[in-house]
Design a protein around this nucleic acid. Structure first.
Lengths: 151, 151
DNA sequence: TTTTCATGTAACTTTATTAGTTACATTCAT
DNA sequence: ATGAATGTAACTAATAAAGTTACATGAAAA
């Protein structure tokens, strides 16, 4: 992974966990899937564990599991569980805020960012982990020699 | 300036131009106000010039001017004039996209980001440069020894 | 027309953030 | 006990953004 968001990374990991519910997956295995590093996986999933989305177990046959059905996990839940924001930061240095104009800009932008966060959260609420997982294997291709019925 | 957005920087500069409509302001003067560097000012205002928001003149008494009334300049106009996005980038490496899950995540996130950009733009449309300028000098303080008339 | 003051811009350096890495303590099943 | 996993601190590397330097260009004024 060169540069994407931690949210994307988390989603990728969660889809893997969702697709293999029967056994725990190790950070190392996930890291291979995500083309990244086990420590990065632990850092990201660690935040999701604190939110009760996943669980980790140490020792033999340890690893990560999904704790809830994918249909019940919205992207908003995941997003909220992680510290990060999808919006860039716009606050000025404390020093610069001696200028009245800087404070005015910061105020207006701050209100905007707060509104924007709410809008983004509402939009993320409408997508579940399951939505992504189903898209990953689009339609179990309608086979020609198949189980579809005519008439 | 340590770390804020280019949009904030642009707004700050534009408020200064708005407050001094009678003469052009040089990049160097603006840089002092913005606690930054003349070249950075030129880079940012250069984009706004291409959008017809400001004009620059070279040579003696040269500098920057606002071309339109502040009430007619929405934050969306300014935002659109600048290349930047307020949302962080979420696309994965081309290499990672061989994985179907990565593609699914990218697709969903891409749709989300597109929607989000539209939401942000609509929200920015509702704020004008003048709104910020007026907030910067809240109410011309009613002076005690003053020019206000009684009864 | 020469001087001066401004922008325009390329190239480089610095700084901040993020990911990646290494190392090792901890925990748990065997 | 041993082996396999997480937890985490500390460090390194890569990236992006701002800052800086240098100089060409253009316009007004002396």
């Amino acid at each position: 992974m060169k540069r994407s968001s931690r949210l994307s990374l988390a989603l990728h990991a969660l889809v893997h966990l969702h697709k293999q519910p029967d056994q725990a997956i190790t950070s190392t295995t996930l890291a291979t899937c995500l083309m990244t590093n086990p420590v990065v996986v632990r850092r990201v999933l660690g935040e999701l564990r604190e939110a009760g989305i996943v669980a980790s177990t140490k020792g033999h046959d340890g690893g990560w599991r999904l704790l809830r059905p994918a249909t019940d996990i919205s992207l908003r839940t995941i997003y909220s569980a992680m510290g990060e924001s999808l919006l860039i930061r716009t606050e000025s240095d404390p020093g610069d805020r001696q200028c009245g104009i800087v404070r005015a800009v910061d105020t207006v932008m701050g209100e905007f960012i707060a509104d924007a966060e709410a809008l983004l959260a509402a939009r993320l609420e409408r997508v579940s982990l399951d939505d992504i997982a189903r898209q990953a294997v689009p339609h179990p291709l309608p086979s020609h020699s198949g189980d579809h019925h005519h008439g």
